[in-house]
Design a protein around this nucleic acid. Sequence first.
DNA 1: ACAGCGTATGGCACTCAGTGTCAGTCGTAA
DNA 2: TTACGACTGACACTGAGTGCCATACGCTGT
Lengths: 251, 251
Amino acid sequence: MSSSSAAPTAKPPMRDALVAAAFRLFLERGYEQTTVDDIVALAGVGRRSFFRYFPSKEDVVFPDHEGCLADMTAFLASGAPECEPVRRVCDAARLVLRMYAENPTFSVQRYRLTKQVPGLRAYELSVVWRYERALAEYLRGRYAGRPDGTLRADVVAAAVVAAHNNALRSWLRSQGRSDAEETVDHALGYVQAAFGARPAGPAGPAPGEAGPAALFGGPVEHPDDVVVLVSRRDAPLWRVVQEIETAFGRA
Amino acid sequence: MSSSSAAPTAKPPMRDALVAAAFRLFLERGYEQTTVDDIVALAGVGRRSFFRYFPSKEDVVFPDHEGCLADMTAFLASGAPECEPVRRVCDAARLVLRMYAENPTFSVQRYRLTKQVPGLRAYELSVVWRYERALAEYLRGRYAGRPDGTLRADVVAAAVVAAHNNALRSWLRSQGRSDAEETVDHALGYVQAAFGARPAGPAGPAPGEAGPAALFGGPVEHPDDVVVLVSRRDAPLWRVVQEIETAFGRA
DNA sequence: ACAGCGTATGGCACTCAGTGTCAGTCGTAA
DNA sequence: TTACGACTGACACTGAGTGCCATACGCTGT
C-alpha cells in the first residue's frame, strides 16, 4: 500500500528494512537480547527471508562490508604498477576508512555494538582479516621477486591494517567529530615511514607534515665503500630513512 | 565397563579424553560433520560435561590457548624494564611459537582443520587477536610518554604477530620438519629492523647476520643543528636506522 | 485475456549448539 | 556412620541456521 511504485530510490527492498529493524532492536535492548524472530516481526517479513539476505545474524551488523571488500580488491587490481606498493595499500586503506566516514552515525552505532558484544567482535575480526589478506596478496604480487617477499607483504599488510584501525577507532571514539582523513593520514604516514616509503601527498617534495627538506645536499660517496649523510636534526625520520635507502641502493 | 579404575596417568581426567575423542572424529569425518553428541558418545561421558570443560565446540580445538596466553602476559608483566620494548614483545612471540613447536603433530593436525573450516578460522582469529592486544597493551605502557605511543604500540604489535604467523604457517606447512626457532628469528628480525631495534641474539654487538660494525665512529654534532653520520655501505640497514634514532634522540 | 514459467516469499519441521536445573554419586572429614 | 561439597549425568528448553514445499507475484508468448 504505502510502497508499491512511487519509491524514489529504485533498489532498497526488504534488505534495508531488515537492517533498520535489526539496529532499532539492537540499540534498544541489546544484540544478544534480540532474536531473529524479533527482527522479522518488526520488519513484517518471514523468518526464512532474513537468512536469505544475511547468512547469519551477525551479517546484518555489517551489511555493506562485502561490497566494500570488493571495491578495495578492485582498486588494488586496477593497474597502477608505477605506484609504490606500500603507498598503494595505504590508499586502499584510506578507501575503506572513507566508506566508514560516509555514514558516521551508523558507524558509531555499530562501533558501540561491536565493542561490547564478544560475538560481534569475533565476526568483525574475520571481516578485517579478509581486508588484510587482500592487501597481503596484492603486496605478495608486487614483492614477488624479493627474497622475503611474502614475509614483507604480510608484515606491511598487518601494519597498515593496524594503523588504519587505530585511526578508525580514534575517529569513532570522537563520535565522528574529528577529521577522519587527517587521522588516518597521520597513522599511515607512520607506517610508510617505518617501511621506507614516502607518506601520501600529491607527489611533491614536502608532503604536508614534512616541513623542511631533510638533507643538505645528497650523499657523498667515498672511495672506500663509505657513505656520508648530512641531515638536519629536526628532519622527519622517514625522510632520512628514504635517503639512506637510496644511498644504499635498496629502493 | 572398559575404563573404570586402571588409568595409568594420574591427571589427565575427562578433559583430555574429550580432546582426544574430538580430534579423532574431526580428522575422520570433519569438524562440521561431527556433533558434540558424537564426541561425548565416543568419550563415554555426558553431554553436559563437555560444555563444563569447553565453553563451545570450537574451544576443544584450542585446548591450551588460555594457558598460553596467560603465560605470555605473565612473561610480559615480569619486569625487565631495561629490555628494549620491541625485542621484548618479539621474545614473547617466540614463547608462543615454542608452545606450538612442543607438539608438532598436534599443531599440524589443528592447522589442517583451521585451514579448511571457516568457523575455526574465525575462532583462531579471535584467539590471535587477544595475543596481539596483550602485546599492544604492553607496548602502550612502555611507550606511554611518546607522542604517537598508542599508534606505535598497535602497529608494532600487529607487525610482530604477522611475522610470527608467517613463520608459524611456514613451519606448519613443512609438517614441523623445518627449524621453527630459526624461521621465527628470521621473521622477527625483519620486524625489529623495520622498527629500529636490534634483532635477537645474546646481547652481543654483532647478532649473527649483522656482519661488520655499521658505523665508523659515532655521530658528530655540528653547531647549527646538523648531524653527520658516516657508515659503511654494506652495513645492515637496521643498524644504521638505530644509530640515526640515537643521534636524533628518539630512542 | 489466459496459460506457462521463473523468481521471490512465507510457513513448517528439523538439526544442533548452548544453558538452566535438578538429581544422583563419589570422596572426605567429623 | 552421617554430613557436606564437588563432580557428573539426564532432561528440558531457547535460539540459530537449513531443507523443503506451497504459494504469490511478475513477465512472456500465444
